[in-house]
Nucleic acid binder design. Structure first.
Lengths: 303, 303
DNA sequence: TATTAAATTGAAATTTTATTTCATAAGTGG
DNA sequence: CCACTTATGAAATAAAATTTCAATTTAATA
């Protein structure tokens, strides 16, 4: 498990380093940003060693030259910690957990976004545009994705129904008008409920879009259009579906934003109007609720 | 609106560059990765100019030296395009949309994660551990967050109820046992429903945690413990709450993972067992559903 | 503990790379 | 077409990186 990150690389062979190499390692670990701005001799002076040791340190950690070390550090400065879906182990520091979570999420989003080609996206937008309204369905964590899609599109006046009750949904689909779109969300692409609904929709000649993870799966094959998110590796099992969710959310965002841009002005107007309406409602209910709240009002000073 | 990115910087003053500087600019724009590995004279040769021109080019785009240019390029290589919550405008290319979405999401997550201090996190974990069970509530897009929290914790056997019906939730809270935890999610921190529920919980001496955006707000003030996500700027209005959701999700993940690590082994066992159960259920229902699916089976060959 | 071999280290020499200087060439406006 | 500005690269210089090597420390062995 060799990470390319200088930080981890240094940590992992720290014990094998010589005394003066360790002095240099300290600085590299603790103040990488400063090291980036130093010359080899400056770093030598700062660590109370010699330029020769600095060069030796670079070689020791597997980096061919000092300028290369600086380039590496610079590359990592703002880049998320991406190490092929690392799982999180029990002896991790809070800092490490944070970095890994961020890195995993970033990687999942990035790869997912790269996976979607513009053509597919355009087709998806067309199906959405053509639909009088949309049904979305997902179960478990995919339900969150479905609900998110529905919320976003409803906000711009594109009617989108996320009905978690399969029976009711079947009834709706059965009597849905032409061009109605069904979006099925299933990470595995094998969830029987979603497959069944997709079949039903197809039998009624409705359009269908699937959102699944990457790779061959029944739902992708059977839907008119298949959108796929990155497939995350073993780490998935442990990290409780975290990165697949993130991936599906960024895909939703991409879909939504691309759609909004198709008809920029009118959609923007819708978003604004819906915001305003919500704000108005909030003001009204705040008044109403104040009575209710009075009853349970707690001391403002916290314990 | 000056971006620090070399790419944009070069583009913006491209017209003011001299003939040979432009040749160099081409290479920097088109093959930054290769440039990173070159020396000044190599870049000169590759662009059919001279080292002197390379240096002049660096100065022209406002970078003091050639090694600095390489460092900059390296820093930007893997870093997401982060430009303070840029909004997405109608004339954007698909590529730009993707980069901005990714950049915004990444920045929101990163800043949120940095915002949470370990102490608060530890306290939150303690409240969760101590609770016999948990109620979560959120409305609108915050409902997604609440539901996500519930799903994650339930998966490891920590009973967590996300009840969207306020009336039913009030009933439950009213008769909840000691140490029961109420988690209220509201991006603004001013949603009246959530405030009312927090009041109720407090009046019953239950513990409460709030999840809101950063800054002073009623909910944060009134909850026992306040978790905050980064507050995104104006772009928010247009991008339909995208980055605040992302931020809340990463916060959930952080909370969840930290909690799981507290009792690593037993929690891990729970996750595995719950996965297995779901898999078993899936196998069973697949059989059942096959009959239903037969009825609507469509041609496997897509149009 | 004394002795020797191996490893570590930094000063100085060397090499590589970056930068500046300056003479020449290419434009530009009159 | 001339004077003058700007642009350019060859060569000189400066700066940085790297290697060499002798001195020194450390470890191993008798």
């Amino acid at each position: 498990m060799k990470s390319k990150h200088v930080h981890y690389r240094v940590k992992s062979i720290y014990d094998d380093l010589t005394r003066s190499e360790r002095k240099i390692a300290q600085l590299v670990l603790n103040e990488p940003e400063k090291v980036i701005k130093m010359t080899a001799s400056e770093l030598a002076k700062a660590s109370d060693t010699s330029p020769a040791s600095v060069i030796r340190f670079c070689k020791s950690i597997g980096i061919p030259s000092f300028p290369d070390l600086k380039l590496q550090l610079s590359a990592e400065k703002d880049a998320p910690v991406v190490q092929q879906y690392t799982d999180i182990s029990p002896d991790e520091s809070p800092e490490d957990i944070k970095n890994k979570l961020l890195g995993n999420a970033y990687q999942a989003m990035k790869e997912t976004i790269q996976l979607v080609d513009d053509e597919t996206l355009t087709s998806a937008i067309q199906l959405i545009s053509a639909a009088p309204f949309i049904y979305v369905y997902g179960i478990g964590s995919s339900y969150l994705v479905a609900e998110n899609i529905a919320q976003k599109f409803n906000r711009i006046g594109k009617v989108c129904i996320c009905q978690p009750d399969v029976h009711l949904l079947i009834a709706s689909l059965t009597s849905a008008p032409e061009r109605t779109l069904f979006i099925g969300v299933s990470n595995s692409g094998e969830t029987s409920e979603v497959l069944a609904l997709n079949d039903l929709a197809k039998s009624r000649h409705l359009h269908t879009i699937s959102i699944t993870q990457f790779g061959a799966n029944s739902l992708s094959k059977q839907a008119d259009l298949s959108l796929q998110t990155v497939k995350s590796k073993e780490a998935e099992l442990r990290s409780a579906a975290t990165s697949s969710l993130t991936a599906q959310f960024i895909l939703t965002d991409l879909l939504f934003h691309t759609y909004v841009l198709k008809n920029y002005d009118e959609n923007m107007a819708s978003i604004r109007t819906s915001r305003e309406s919500v704000d108005q409602y909030k003001q009204q209910t705040t008044k109403k609720n104040s009575k209710f709240r009075q009853k349970y009002k707690t001391n403002k000073n916290k314990a």
